[in-house]
Design a protein around this nucleic acid. Structure first.
Lengths: 113, 113
DNA sequence: GTAAGTAGTTACCTGAAGGTAATCAAAATA
DNA sequence: TATTTTGATTACCTTCAGGTAACTACTTAC
């Protein structure tokens, strides 16, 4: 296998791994919600509107396991749980911006006309 | 609903639409293969290795419908079919680069140590 | 005429993703 | 004491993504 083919396969592997982390219906919405500041379960749920508590809970756990978000329990009264982006989560910002930019372009080209 | 919330929801919608186009196990590999030049069915299949002809055929059709790639039939003998990126497909380059960059960082943070 | 290569298609099956609805436990409020 | 709020969990069901294996149609080479 030559150099070029090796680079190609490497790119495929790495981007595929990256995609797995943000894939699915709810992960990007959750991450985007948290780029606007730390939020509680109910606040995220309100931001996303059509997500069920089951899916939100499940996806928050998955993102936490991938070290994208952090769950903090403040045991003040009333006990509150706050979710926030980790540095790894914050490092997604440029990627998210490009995804958004391309999404806008795509929308214009395909849906828009 | 205030300005900030509106921007948030807009971002969610647009990035989600963008994600749908590249989502799945095989679309990014196919697109990446074609960034290295136009290719025939068999060449893409050889580049990706573990993809089945069914999945390749199916995903090529989906990408063609989204105007990301173009199918060209040359009826020289032997009849050959060549797939290439459209301008819309080529416009994904920056996004793919960011996905790759973040993937490298993620790999280092999570898998690497 | 038989084998091999190119570009697929078809039928069938499995597991994961995601949805719905009901329930739960702790604490605050009425 | 009863009700509401917050942050979930559980059981059940449906749909879809993806895999396997076999087959096809056309053409060229042997």
């Amino acid at each position: 296998m030559n150099q070029k083919e090796e680079v190609c396969k490497q790119k495929m592997r790495v981007t595929r791994d990256a995609l797995v982390v943000i894939q699915g219906k709810w992960r990007l919405p959750i991450i985007i919600a948290l780029t606007f500041g730390d939020k509680r379960f109910g606040e995220i749920k309100k931001d996303i509107m059509d997500i069920s508590p089951k899916m939100l809970s499940q996806e928050l756990k998955a993102l936490e396991m991938n070290k994208i978000i952090k769950r903090t329990l403040y045991d003040s009264m009333p006990v509150s749980v706050v979710y926030s982006l980790t540095p790894l989560g914050e490092s997604m910002q440029k990627m998210l911006d490009e995804l958004l930019d391309w999404g806008i372009y795509f929308r214009k080209e395909i849906i828009g006309k």
